[in-house]
C-alpha cells in the first residue's frame, strides 16, 4: 500500500532533492494560531509535517519543545483536539503527509485502537511514538501498519550493528535519524559522523532517511540535505513561536509569520542542496 509519505518521497526523489520536515506542537501557543500555522506550512515550503501531540512529561525533549508542549497544554490542548486539527488541515490539503509525534501515555489513555481509527479517519499518515521501542511493537507499531498508518522509528548514534535490525524491522515511511545522543534542540551533529551513520543504515534499508535534532539554520539544513532524504527542524520553529509571544505568553501579530518566514528560509536551504546520491 502506497501512503502519502511514500508518494511524497517518490516525488522528492524525482525532483532530485531532500525534503523539509517541519515540527510544531499542536495547540502551541493556542489552537487557532497553531491551526493557522499548520494550514500554511506547506505553502511556505514544508514537504512533510510532524505535529507534536503535547505531553506533560516529554522525556526526550530539550527546553524549547518542553515549553511548547506546556504552552499547548496550558491553552487546553488535548489529543482529541489534535486529531480535529489534522482533520481540518486534511480538508484543505490532500498531498502533504502529516506525522503525529509524541509519547505513549496520551495514546494509551485514549485507547490505542480507538486512537488509530480516529487518526486514520482524520488523515494522519504516520506516527512517531518516542517511548515505544521495537520491544513493544505489538502495541502500536503493528496495529498502526495494519490500518495503513506508517510507523516511523528513530535510529540514533547508539544504534549499532547489533541493534540496527530491530530498529529497521517494522519501520515504514522513513527512518528518522536522531543525529546526536541527546535531547531535541541541543548541540548540533557533525556532518561527517552523520554521513558515516547514514551510509551504514543504507546498507540495511531502502527506506528514505531523514536527519533531525540540532538543525536550526537554513545553512545547517542545506548541509544535511546533501546527505539525508529529508531534514527535520523542530526546536528552532517552536523557539520562533516562543520569541513572538507577548508579555502574557499570548500569540502576537507576528507569531504566524515568525514560523512561516523561518520555514521559507529553511526550504530555500534544503532546495539549494541537490542530492548528490546517484539514482
Amino acid at each position: 500500500m502506497t501512503t502519502r509519505i511514500d508518494q511524497r518521497f517518490a516525488d522528492l526523489k524525482r525532483q532530485g532533492r531532500a525534503g523539509l520536515v517541519t515540527f510544531i506542537t499542536a495547540g502551541d501557543p493556542d489552537l487557532a494560531t497553531s491551526s493557522t500555522i499548520l494550514s500554511r506550512l506547506a505553502a511556505a515550503g514544508a514537504d512533510l509535517i510532524e505535529l507534536g501531540m503535547p505531553f506533560s512529561d516529554p522525556m526526550a525533549e530539550g527546553p524549547p519543545v518542553q515549553l511548547s508542549s506546556q504552552r499547548a497544554l496550558k491553552a487546553g490542548m488535548t489529543l482529541k483536539k489534535t486529531l480535529a486539527m489534522v482533520r481540518a488541515f486534511r480538508a484543505g490539503d490532500q498531498a502533504t503527509p502529516i506525522i503525529l509525534m509524541g509519547y505513549y501515555n496520551p495514546v494509551y489513555s485514549f485507547g490505542v485502537e480507538r486512537f488509530l481509527d480516529a487518526a486514520k479517519e482524520a488523515g494522519v499518515d504516520g506516527l512517531i511514538i518516542v517511548d515505544c521501542p521495537p520491544e513493544h511493537d505489538d502495541e502500536v507499531c503493528l496495529p498502526a501498519q495494519a490500518k495503513g498508518i506508517n510507523f516511523i522509528r528513530l535510529a540514533t548514534p547508539t544504534t549499532d550493528a547489533r541493534r540496527l535490525p530491530a530498529v529497521i524491522a517494522h519501520t515504514s515511511g522513513f527512518v528518522y535519524y536522531v543525529s546526536i545522543a541527546g535531547v531535541t534542540g541541543a548541540k548540533s551533529a557533525e556532518l561527517a559522523s552523520v554521513e558515516t551513520a547514514l551510509a551504514r543504515f543504507r546498507t540495511a534499508t531502502d527506506l528514505p532517511i531523514c536527519v533531525g535534532f540540532g538543525i536550526r539554520t537554513p545553512e545547517q539544513a542545506a548541509a544535511f540535505a546533501r546527505v539525508g532524504d529529508g531534514v527535520v527542524v523542530g526546536s528552532a520553529l517552536v523557539s520562533a513561536i516562543r520569541d513572538s509571544l507577548d508579555d502574557n505568553g499570548q500569540a502576537g501579530p507576528l507569531t504566524v509569520d515568525a514560523v512561516l518566514d523561518l520555514v521559507s528560509a529553511l526550504a530555500k536551504g534544503v532546495r539549494s542542496a541537490r542530492l548528490l546520491a546517484a539514482e
Partner: peptide
Amino acid sequence: ERGQFGIFGGRYVAETLMPL
C-alpha cells in the same frame, strides 16, 4: 523475558536508551 509483571513493567524508553 520482556521485563513485564503481567501487563506491567516493560521497557518504554527512547531508542537512544534501548541499547543501554
